[in-house]
Every structure is written in C-alpha cells, then in structure tokens.
Design a protein around this nucleic acid. Structure first.
Lengths: 338, 338
DNA sequence: AATATAAGGTTAAACGTTTCGCGATAGGAG
DNA sequence: CTCCTATCGCGAAACGTTTAACCTTATATT
C-alpha cells in the first residue's frame, strides 16, 4: 500500500492552525507551547516531512554543496571528500559527489549539473588550466573552493599540500644520504602539482650546489603505467640514478611493480621514495619511504572555508592554504658509501 | 557583476510567445519551426536554464538517483559507483553519492537525506540485517536496489558476486595443491557476504571429504587490523594452516603486512589467496593469488535494472543477480609435496 | 482608563515550472 | 461551400513552501 506524502497544509488542518504558523514552527520561530504540541503531533501522525524542492524554490537555497573530483577510484580524493561530507553534514549541509573521470568535457557537464541542482557552493579539483567555467560560477555568485590545484587566472580559495617543499624535503633526504644522481617521476607537465614538485626538486639541488641532469627529470601521466615504464627507462640508462622520487600514488605502484618484475634490488640497486598511500608503504617489502599528504586536514580546512563563504564571510578572500606534508623514511632508502 | 538567472517567463517575453509554448518546446513538444528559432535565440541570449527545483516540484521527479555505500575509501564500492554514475548519466539521470561511514545510525540519516532530496530511485549497500528503513522506501514507492549484500526480510532487486562459489573455487585450488589445513579469514559473522564465503569454504571441504577444524575459521572486521591480527593468530597455532584464504581487500592488506613484519616466507611457510584488488596483487612479491569481483559488471547490471524500474517495468521483480568472480592463481600459492 | 508594546497568528502573494482544456487557424475531403 | 481534423498556441491552475504585512489578544505602563 503506497502512502501519499503529507504536506504542510495537511499538518495545518490536523493541528487546527494556519499554514504560516506551521511554517514558522518548522523554521524555528516562536509558537505557543500548546500549539507546538499540536503541530508536533500532527507531524508525527501524518509522517510529514518538508518538501525540499518547494522550500528551495522559495528560499533559493538548497543547503547542498557540490563536490567534483577527477576520479572516484583515487583514494586521495575520496578520503578528503569523506571528511568534508562529514563536517558539512554537522552544519546542516549535504553533499553531492560527482566525478569527471579525468575528462575536461565531463568536468564541464558535471559542473553544469551541480549548478542546475542549485547547489549553494562548490568544492572541486580542477582538471586543466582553463578557467572560464569556474569564472562563470563566480558570476553566478556561487562560492567555489579549489582543492589540490591552484589556477593562475582566477581568484579562488584554495586548499592544497605544500608540494614544493614536500619534494624538496624528500629529495633532500636522498642527497644527505649520499645520492648524487636522483631521478624524479613527475606527473603531466602542465599540471600545477607537477610543476611545484619539480620546482622543489630543482631548488634543493641548487641549495646543495648539485648539477641537474635533465635526463633525470621525467614526466608521466600520474597513472600506474607511466610509473612502471619510466622506472624501467631510468634503470636502462647507461648511468642510472641511485635514487628515485615518485610523485604520486599510482606511479609509485607502477614503479614498485617494475622493480619486482625486473628483480631490481631495493634499496641496494635503487633507493625509492613514493607518495601518498601509507598502507601501501607498509605492505611493500622492504618498507617504503613516502611523502604523506594531510588528507584529513585538507578536508577540514576546505569545509571550514566554504562554510564561512556560505555565511557571507569574505573577510579573508581569497584564502590560499598550503598544508605541510609528512615524510617517512623507511627501508627503501639506503645511505651510499662514499 | 552578478547575473540574475532568466526564467521561462523572460524567455517567453523575449520570444513573444506564451510560457506554455516555451515549456512545450523545452519538453520536446511540437512548435512551429519559426517559433522554435525564436525560442532558441531567446534561451541563448538570456542564458536561460530550467530551474530544476520548480520543475521537480511540478513533476514529482528529480531525474536523480541516490547511491549509498558504507565507505568512500573502499575502492570496491567507489569503482562500482563510478560505473553506475556514468551509465545513468547517459540516460538523463544524475547521481547523488553518499557514504555512511560504516554506521547504521548514519545509514538511516543519509537515507532520509536522499528521500528528502526526492531521488527517484536508490542503489545501496545495506549495513546490518535490519530492514525497516528499506521497507519504508518501498512504501513510498521508491525503487531500491541492493548491491553486494542480500537481505532476508525484504523483497528487493540485488546485484552481487557469487561469493559462495568464489570461496569454493579459491579454497579448492589450495586443496588440489595438497593443502589439508586451510585457514579462512572471514568478515563480521553476521554479514551476508561472510556467511556465503564461509559456506563455500565448508562445502568444498565436504565435497573433498575433508574434516573441518573449527579453529581454522576465524571472523574479522573486514579491516586491515583484523587481517594482520588473525594472520598472526594462525601462524602462532601449534599446528598452523599451510594455506590461508582472506576474504576481502583490507584484510588481505593486513595479512600481507603481518607476513612481511614477521618474516614469514610466502609461499614456503604459507600459501595465501587474497581478495579484490588486482593492482595489489601485482605489487606484492611474490605475486599474489586473488579472487577478483566483476566491479564493472556489477555496476552495469545494477544501473540497467534500476533504469527499468524507473520506467515502471517490474516484469522481473525481484531480480537476484549473482555474478561470477575470477580466480587468479599466482606465486603466493605453492603445491605441497606429499 | 487609555495607550503602548509584545507575542503570536493569519492572509495572500510569490517562487518557476508543467499541463489541462480550450481556441484559433489552415488544409483536405466531400 | 461546409465540415472535419490536425496542428499549434494560450490562459490559468496547480505543485508545496516561505514571508511580508497585517490582525488579534494580552499584558505592562502611564
């Protein structure tokens, strides 16, 4: 037997009050104790719940935030989202999660979708360097916050890791252990995080007055395959590096597969520092050195900033947050004899 | 400069037509070629888009499907969702993804949220055995489809792996390689998938006329810690198993950590068959044997069934789908000498 | 006693759509 | 020439809320 949902009208009739009074109650206004009881009983009996569609139509707010990420299969993003969702819920906001499968075209489609769903704000990881679709959100007065990547051509709140110093510190640990030929496996050349991580690599070389061999800087696709391939390329060089820094999780996975497959001895033949996934680090043998990004902190910061924007507080706009990463050096890194 | 969104009224005025005609156009009705052009121009110039809130209020459909899973940090679920989202989008439906962080309480809250958001249908992974909140959806005439787990007390479409035979086949491979003491690390005792996998374990023992040692059947929490702990428990037994079957990804991870930590030789001291994550299988050394669930197929099947329900087609209701898993035997399993 | 104030209730318009029922026009059939 | 039918446009009601403006009543103030 299908139940037909009760409306505020039904509640009003049942309680013997006007619609306006019920509405006032629903929105936290003052009603007589006596009437409050009547209304609450009516709601309970009729199993009434507010029609959010109608409410949103009137108020122009949906109490919903859109979250848009490149991939749902990337635990770095999903654990940030999980945190965000949790915090927003505590403040009465709910979250619509979308992914654009690493496609710029889909990115725009999903963004349109979120706008059509009338979200009150958006948290996203932008794909390319293009900015027009984000600018459009700003024109529509929808607060946007970027995660993980900064964009040059638009003013926006951002929360990300301090990728430059993350790379600096990781490579530095190889340097102080006597490594002089250090390879870096970067992501796509145009992606912001790649550029930052390469900058860190270069800067630490300069600070230690070491020459840079351009052949030791390689760009991958942030995917497993490129980690695998580039590691093999490095090891096939006439003069291979003694240490390698891999700049994301998927490529780290690929690199380790290549090491296992080719029976390369780690850390004797090669020292490796990977990225992001602390569980992987423990599962690999010898235990893997990694850079860990503060996912929870990223989520918390992002949620807090967006909430303040939703409350109309633009005091600190635009707020640029570079959060510190953690560096764990384990058995996959070896000190070289001089 | 903030733009104020155009309404259908503005479009009608600009095009010199009535609201009703514009609405007809928007919903695929016939309008004169001449008027169609006018409307299209008006829409373009005014940058009009339908207010989905208002539309939903009228039509009682939001063209939105809710997806509810236990955790966003579990790649098994998120990759199924990614597939589902993609297919639904092609049919004009969009997806609201929620997770309930393994909490029955949160599960109900999120379900409420989805209902409040007036989703047209729901795909979910249920948490416990309780059924009332799901029954309520049925009363509200909202199609529900369960993934991964079946519930006894409610008629529902289900899509899941054939967990029983997955376990049967995995354990059988250990048996035919001469293993006689085989441990199984199951999930929580009350969870459907655990029960099925244990059933498979028992049935294959019966079919090969092998005695079952109750001590070799252990229940964990489907988390890393229990995989780690139970593996150690097994190895500390006076008469430890020679082969172990681990029944989900996280516990597989934990088990491998324990093996690495305790310097246990795999496969010489212990043969291991894990679960779910094919990438992990390649990264671990020696290469890991695993059961792989057909995530894409689960997503496709789920989306297809829900779509037919949304179109009012209940011809096959309830549709119970047990999809076959794949078994990969690699170097982590050793044949015992007799 | 007259008046001001506060508290709480009500009426009615509005939000942006869809859709029913009707009217107008034009072409074809007889 | 008349009538029928097909096609398309229009007016207006309805969906379930919120909210501004106003009304009523009771109490406090002078």
């Amino acid at each position: 037997m299908i139940e037909i949902p009760a409306t505020i009208k039904d509640v009003a009739k049942y309680a013997g009050l006007s619609i306006a009074t019920v509405s006032k109650y629903l929105n936290g206004g003052n009603v007589l104790e006596e009437n409050r009881k009547k209304i609450e009983e009516a709601i309970r009996v009729l199993n009434f719940r507010v029609n959010e569609l109608a409410r949103g139509l009137k108020t122009n707010r949906t109490m919903t935030v859109g979250v848009l990420i490149p991939s749902l299969e990337n635990i770095f993003f999903t654990s940030i989202i999980s945190k965000i969702e949790n915090i927003l819920l505590q403040h009465g906001y709910s979250t619509i999660v979308c992914n654009y499968r690493e496609s710029s075209k889909l990115e725009k489609i999903k963004l349109e979708f979120l706008v059509n769903k009338m979200v009150d704000g958006i948290i996203m990881v932008p794909h390319g360097e293009e900015v027009s679709h984000i600018q459009e959100l700003r024109n529509k007065n929808i607060p946007v916050l970027l995660i993980d990547r900064m964009l040059k051509d638009v003013e926006c709140d951002v929360v990300m890791s301090d990728n430059l110093n993350a790379a600096y510190n990781a490579v530095e640990q190889l340097i102080v252990r006597g490594h002089r030929r250090i390879g870096i496996i970067g992501g796509p050349e145009k992606v912001y995080t790649t550029q930052e991580r390469i900058k860190g690599y270069i800067r630490v070389h300069e600070d230690y007055a070491l020459d840079i061999d351009e052949d030791l800087i390689k760009y991958g696709g942030y995917d497993i395959e490129s980690g695998y391939r580039i590691l093999e390329e490095f090891m096939e060089m006439a003069n291979p590096p003694t240490g390698i820094f891999v700049t994301n999780y998927e490529m780290t996975l690929g690199a380790i597969m290549a090491i296992n497959k080719n029976n390369i001895k780690m850390p004797d033949q090669i020292s490796l520092i990977g990225f992001d996934n602390i569980q992987l680090a423990k599962v690999v043998k010898p235990s893997l050195s990694i850079v860990v990004q503060p996912m929870d902190e990223i989520g918390e910061t992002a949620a807090a900033i967006l909430l303040s924007r939703l409350n109309g507080d633009y005091g600190t706009f635009p707020s640029i947050n570079r959060l510190k990463t953690e560096l764990l050096i384990r058995d996959s890194v070896k000190a070289l004899a001089r």
